[in-house]
């Protein structure tokens, strides 16, 4: 290939293709990320709710014998052990009459919790001043006749865990996007290279189609569309100049 061909670049022809690839990949990443965020958020939130409900149920089940023995010190000891579970920020156990029998609040029981329905077991989101945002679930002790165990999980911790899980997923997708775009650019450039050579060859033919060396170019031996076009261009140029057909044009086409 002559030096003239190296200076010719195919820019416009694949510009839209590149934008198209970016757009398609972007769309895929965006939609996959949104789906991923939604799925992970929904699934993990549900899982945390189930976990916290299970913990509340475990505490409630473990409390039965202790409550019947009126051993509140052991009950408090039991409650304290569950505070070691990551994300659990508070636990309280109320009697069937709503009296607080054990809890983990320092320096005191928040007003919002004092005023709440202590028999309720439905998940409820609480925002406690000075403490943060929590999801709280309850579990009845001895079908509720002995009281209720309540567990509060820090929503910030849950959100952080969900964000971390989502972040990992999006990170992976983003890496795939970057690799995909780089690969597509490489493939486009690969496709553009013979076209650039063909363009350069066509320019040379246009400038001086009589030159003998134009019939010995490497592009003429290519067995693809670029080779066919190059031979066709040479043929047309030679015919226009009153010379014979270009080598291989008639047989190949």
């Amino acid at each position: 290939m002559s030096s003239a061909s190296s200076g010719v670049r195919i820019r416009r022809l694949f510009q839209k293709t590149r934008f198209g690839i970016f757009a398609v990949f972007g769309l895929i990443v965006l939609s996959t990320s949104i789906l991923c965020i939604y799925t992970v958020d929904t699934e993990l939130t549900a899982e945390y709710e189930i976990n916290i409900q299970n913990i509340a149920k475990t505490i409630a089940d473990s409390s039965v014998g202790i409550l019947l023995n009126r051993d509140l010190a052991t009950l408090q000891s039991l409650v304290d052990q569950f505070l070691d579970v990551q994300g659990i920020e508070y636990i309280y156990i109320t009697s069937e009459s709503g009296e607080f029998l054990a809890h983990t609040f320092v320096p005191g029981i928040p007003e919002e919790i004092l005023a709440s329905d202590h028999g309720s077991t439905e998940p409820v989101e609480r925002s406690l001043p000075g403490m943060g945002d929590f999801i709280e679930v309850g579990s009845p002790i001895l079908a509720g006749v002995a009281g209720t165990a309540h567990v509060g999980m820090d929503l910030d911790v849950v959100a952080l865990k969900i964000q971390r899980a989502i972040g990992q997923q999006v990170y992976l997708i983003s890496v795939i996007l970057v690799l995909g775009v780089l690969a597509s650019i490489w493939f486009v450039n690969l496709a553009a290279k013979p076209l650039a050579e063909l363009l350069a060859y066509a320019v040379e033919l246009a400038r001086d189609g009589e030159r003998e060396d134009l019939a010995d170019r490497e592009i003429l031996s290519r067995d693809d569309e670029a080779g066919h076009l190059a031979r066709l261009f040479l043929h047309v140029a030679r015919q226009g100049a009153g010379r014979g057909p270009a080598p291989g044009v008639g047989g190949r086409e």
């Binding site: 052991t74 000891s77 304290d80 320092v106």
Partner: peptide, 11 residues
Amino acid sequence: QIDAYGRSGWA
């Protein structure tokens, strides 16, 4: 003290 000791005395 919010532990078994405190609860024992509280009770």
